[in-house]
Simulated scan of single mutants.
Amino acid sequence: MKALFAAALLLGSFSQAFAQTPDIEALPVSTIFVTSSGMWEREPADDAAKPTEPAQNNPTARAEPTRGYYKVVAMRQGDGTAKIYLQQIAYTADGPALVDTLELEEFTQMKAYVTDIRPESSAGASSLPGLFVTVHLKTDPAQKEPDAWTILIDELGDMKIEKASN
């Protein structure tokens, strides 16, 4: 009887786990690495900062800045190489929202075989704007050790991609 009860609990937990995975099923199977890291903040545009009708009664009311984080995604291509994308994700009241996606052409031109992508820190969201991610890749699949490249975005939003120097 105990074995039957344990099996029923196990099956119930599996069916519940599968029922809660619709978002992950939308992720393409060609996605090989996803790293969320860094932080960005943008002040509201002048026209967006103008008070709306109800806020006109409050002279100190102004629009909140837009904030979010970066996501670096590697997608495997048919030939085994990868394309790497940088995304800006905004924090919204309804959850994360995609702001922009940019293919990082430097990696596409290398025809890179991506072996890992790591953030600067695994401590969670940064309180300072910017991004620092290391991409480990091979330009030849027979290469013994991967090369390390960094993606750096400074506090002003300027991006630099360069070979890592240890």
Score class of each variant (00 low, 15 high):
Ala3Arg: 14
Leu4Thr: 14
Leu4Phe: 03
Phe5Ile: 14
Ala6Phe: 13
Ala7Leu: 13
Ala7Gly: 09
Ala8Ile: 12
Leu10Asn: 00
Gly12Phe: 14
Ser13Gly: 00
Phe14Thr: 12
Phe14Val: 13
Ser15Asn: 10
Ser15His: 05
Gln16Glu: 01
Ala17Met: 02
Gln20Glu: 15
Thr21Lys: 14
Thr21Gly: 01
Pro22Asp: 14
Asp23Ile: 05
Ile24Phe: 13
Ile24Gln: 14
Glu25Met: 03
Pro28Met: 01
Ser30Lys: 13
Thr31Tyr: 01
Ile32Cys: 03
Val34Phe: 09
Ser36Asn: 11
Ser36Pro: 12
Ser37Asn: 04
Gly38Asp: 08
Gly38Cys: 11
Trp40Cys: 05
Glu41Ile: 12
Glu43Asn: 12
Glu43Pro: 01
Ala45Gly: 04
Ala45Asn: 02
Asp46Val: 09
Ala49Gly: 00
Pro51Phe: 15
Glu53Arg: 03
Pro54Leu: 07
Pro54Gln: 07
Gln56Pro: 00
Asn57Cys: 06
Asn58Tyr: 12
Ala61Ser: 14
Ala63Cys: 13
Glu64Leu: 08
Glu64Phe: 00
Thr66Glu: 14
Tyr69Trp: 10
Tyr70Asp: 10
Tyr70Arg: 03
Tyr70Ile: 08
Tyr70Glu: 01
Val72Glu: 03
Val73Cys: 08
Val73Phe: 06
Ala74Asp: 06
Ala74Phe: 13
Arg76His: 02
Asp79Ser: 04
Gly80Trp: 14
Thr81Lys: 03
Lys83Phe: 02
Ile89His: 00
Ile89Val: 10
Ala90Ser: 08
Tyr91Pro: 04
Tyr91Gly: 12
Ala93Val: 10
Ala93Gln: 10
Gly95Asn: 13
Pro96Phe: 05
Ala97Tyr: 03
Leu102Arg: 11
Glu103Met: 15
Leu104Phe: 11
Leu104His: 09
Glu105Tyr: 07
Glu106Val: 14
Met110Gly: 01
Met110Asn: 07
Met110Val: 04
Lys111Ala: 13
Lys111Ile: 09
Ala112Thr: 09
Val114His: 00
Asp116Ser: 11
Asp116Met: 04
Asp116Cys: 03
Asp116Ala: 15
Arg118Thr: 01
Pro119Cys: 06
Glu120Val: 12
Ser122Val: 04
Ser122Lys: 14
Ala125Val: 07
Ser126Pro: 07
Ser127Phe: 15
Leu128Met: 09
Gly130Ser: 10
Phe132Cys: 01
Val133Ala: 07
Val133Tyr: 05
Thr134Gln: 08
Val135Ala: 12
Val135Arg: 01
His136Lys: 11
His136Cys: 07
Leu137Ser: 08
Lys138Glu: 06
Lys138Gln: 08
Lys138Asn: 05
Thr139His: 08
Asp140Leu: 05
Ala142Phe: 01
Glu145Gln: 08
Pro146Ala: 14
Pro146Phe: 00
Asp147Trp: 10
Ala148Ile: 10
Trp149Pro: 09
Thr150Leu: 09
Thr150Ile: 09
Leu152Phe: 05
Asp154Ile: 05
Leu156Ala: 05
Asp158Tyr: 04
Ile161Phe: 02
Glu162Cys: 06
Glu162Ile: 13
Lys163Ser: 06
Ala164Leu: 05
Ser165Val: 10
